[in-house]
Design a protein around this nucleic acid. Sequence first.
DNA 1: TGAATAGTGTCTTTAAGACACTATGTG
DNA 2: CACATAGTGTCTTAAAGACACTATTCA
Lengths: 247, 247
Amino acid sequence: MPYDPSAFPPFAVTVDLVVLTVRDHALSALVVRRGEPPYQGRWALPGGFVRADEGLAEAAARELAEETGLRAQQPSGPGAGLGAHLEQLATYGDPQRDPRMRVVSVAHLVLAPDLPAPRAGGDARSVRWAHVGELLGRTADSATSLAFDHARILADGVERARSKIEYSSLATAFCPPEFTVGELRRVYEAVWGVALDPRNFHRKVTGTPGFLVPTGGTTTRQGGRPAQLFRAGGATVLNPPMLRPEV
Amino acid sequence: MPYDPSAFPPFAVTVDLVVLTVRDHALSALVVRRGEPPYQGRWALPGGFVRADEGLAEAAARELAEETGLRAQQPSGPGAGLGAHLEQLATYGDPQRDPRMRVVSVAHLVLAPDLPAPRAGGDARSVRWAHVGELLGRTADSATSLAFDHARILADGVERARSKIEYSSLATAFCPPEFTVGELRRVYEAVWGVALDPRNFHRKVTGTPGFLVPTGGTTTRQGGRPAQLFRAGGATVLNPPMLRPEV
DNA sequence: TGAATAGTGTCTTTAAGACACTATGTG
DNA sequence: CACATAGTGTCTTAAAGACACTATTCA
């Protein structure tokens, strides 16, 4: 088959977003309610068409800003500052995944600190945080199960987040700029759904060079003895990794 | 923005393949010579358009068969048997990545045992194995540097393979159906570009339950004392992982 | 005072790193 | 024979698991 650019089947290309955060001790994802068919009234992942002149990560960052006001912090992006972690997740292109036409969706994963209530976009769709446990529960009732193949995409995003905080410092992306060791531990516990030993966890994270940098401040917002505040250090890779306990 | 399926910019969607194998102690990739502009005469990754009615993995498996005759062995595919490991790698969609039009390419990673000489496809393009070290070398001369953004895609695929053999049993995908511990060790050494202690390696792989299953046979094809033959066991995850030595 | 969280230290256990040594084939 | 590769064992070291114990706040 010669490479003939004039004879290709046209596809629609979209980005879908798995936006994760930790709210009240549970891993949660951002979902929007669909206002029109198909799957009208069902919850779905935020997303939209990639424009003709923008890159994939660019489209994902734009959609993220439209839905949440968050500024994406791409690994290599120049705009350093506050914002959420954004990375490509995977691409979904089953011919039947959208009943209307052939759509290939490039899913992206966003890890964000706990935010104020999500703001509805300009199109006034309703938006909310939902615990991933509910969204991925076995009961496939239409009140909670996601539209299209979004349950699969969400599951892949959750699994990516769970495995990536093992060997990277990405768990800090779920934390505010300054946080305590205990707050970071509660992130791991929420994402993995396990309880961790506070003492061994403290030894591990404070003993890993470049992971945490003390800011000098303390806080008592968790109650109990005042805890040191840290910010994320320069290290991105955790070696040896944080071990996820067996279930 | 309402979700209007009639107003989307059309994209071409392709699959590109990073096909890796270990040949004469070096990690090698399959490349094809381009017969037409742009980048005429340059080497590129194999790939092609996704058809209107096929899925992404399906398209990748079809292209792989066309280029090499290999049957893909997808993680969840029903067609168990001999074949190469196939998984999605990442998607590349920079607006400028193809000078002719807007192309989004879903790259796939294939890990294959050392094969007989690749067969040219029906279109008689020339095909060869090249050491990834040469393809990714710093010298950007057009004799070796790849067309389009394929050097970046190849680098991402190599990095995926290097990290994935740490915590999975995927290194066996580079081996024939029956292999020795020494042959498996040479796979790790070629992919990582390091030397491993044969004795500690032997202890590690034979001590990991489900990684290797002895077949009872022995071989002397590597010279020296006859070595036991193994095949890949059912385990897919290595816990604890195989540790990649620091450089 | 009691409850909660923060932080340090100690002992045990797992598994990797660095070897010595033996086994069994080929030229 | 020399030499190559295969395979086992031993000692040391790094780091996780399982705790005990102290520190500092608030109600």
